[in-house]
Design a protein around this nucleic acid. Structure first.
Lengths: 120, 120
DNA sequence: CTTGATTCTGACACTGATGTCACGTTCTAC
DNA sequence: GTAGAACGTGACATCAGTGTCAGAATCAAG
C-alpha cells in the first residue's frame, strides 16, 4: 500500500510516517518512480511505534528495540544484547514510575471531579 | 524557605520553580529585596505539580486544577465548575489510555528483556 | 564594610515529534 | 496525452518545559 492509505489506516500523518522511515523505524519498497510501497505488516509496526512513542521512548531507543520485537509475521529478528537490556531496564523503571504518577494524577482528577458532582 | 532550598528539597530546578510561578502554579512572598520566600506547603505543591506534569497535563490545566485540589494544609479552596469538569473528564480518558499504552509497552519491553535472559 | 554565596530578571537555545508550505514529479483514469 | 490526485524532498515553524548564561542586586556572616 502507499503512504496515504497507511496514514489513513493507522491515523498517523504522512509526515510522521516519513519521519519514522528517516529514523530507521519503518522501511518501504519504492516504485520505479520513487513512491513508497508498504507491506501489509507496516500497519502493525506503526501501531507499535506509536505505542512506544506514547510510552515516552525516543526514536533511537525504539529503533534499537524494534528488531528484537516479535512481529505480527514471525519471531523476533534479533535478540537484545547486554547493553540494550540494561537500557531497557532503565526504561522499564521509568515506565513504572510514570504509570504510578498517572494513577496518582488520575486519583487527584477523580477527587476534583467527584467534589463537583453535587453541583452538576 | 528560599528558592535554593525548595529546589533541593523537591529536586526541581530553580529555573522550573520560577517558571511555575510565572504560569500561576506557585506563589511566594517576597523579601524586601525581592527574593522569593516560600511557605512550607510549597514543597507538597511542587510535588503535585510535578506529578501532573508527568501525567501530561499542561500548565494551563494544572493552573485550573490546583485551586480545586485538597492541599496538605486544608480543604480545597475552590470547586470545579462544569466546564472544568468536562475538560478533566477528557484528561482522565487520556490518562487511562496512556496507562494502557504504558502497560502494553512495558509488556513489550519485558518480552524483549526475557528473551535475552538466557544470554546474560 | 567587605566578601562570597545566593537570588534576581531577561534572553536565547534545545529537544523531538509533528505541522505546514513550496515546488517539482509520479501515478491513475479518462 | 492530459488533468487531477497523490507523492517526493527540503526547509522552516511550533510547542512546552527546561538548560544555560550574563550582568546586576541582595543576603548573611565575618
Amino acid at each position: 500500500m502507499r503512504i496515504g492509505e497507511l496514514a489513513r489506516r493507522t491515523a498517523v500523518s504522512e509526515r510522521s510516517l516519513r519521519y519514522y522511515e528517516q529514523q530507521g523505524l519503518l522501511t518501504a519498497e519504492r516504485t520505479p518512480g520513487g513512491h513508497r510501497e508498504y507491506a501489509e505488516s507496516a500497519v502493525d509496526r506503526v501501531v507499535h511505534i506509536q505505542e512506544l512513542f506514547t510510552a515516552g521512548l525516543c526514536s533511537g531507543k525504539i529503533a534499537e528495540l524494534l528488531p528484537c520485537m516479535r512481529d505480527a509475521d514471525g519471531g523476533p529478528a534479533d535478540v537484545a544484547d547486554g547493553r540494550l537490556v540494561s537500557s531497557l531496564l532503565v526504561e522499564r523503571a521509568r515506565i513504572d514510575g510514570q504509570i504510578a504518577a498517572l494513577q496518582r494524577s488520575r486519583d487527584v482528577l477523580d477527587e476534583v471531579i467527584e467534589a463537583a458532582r453535587p453541583l452538576q
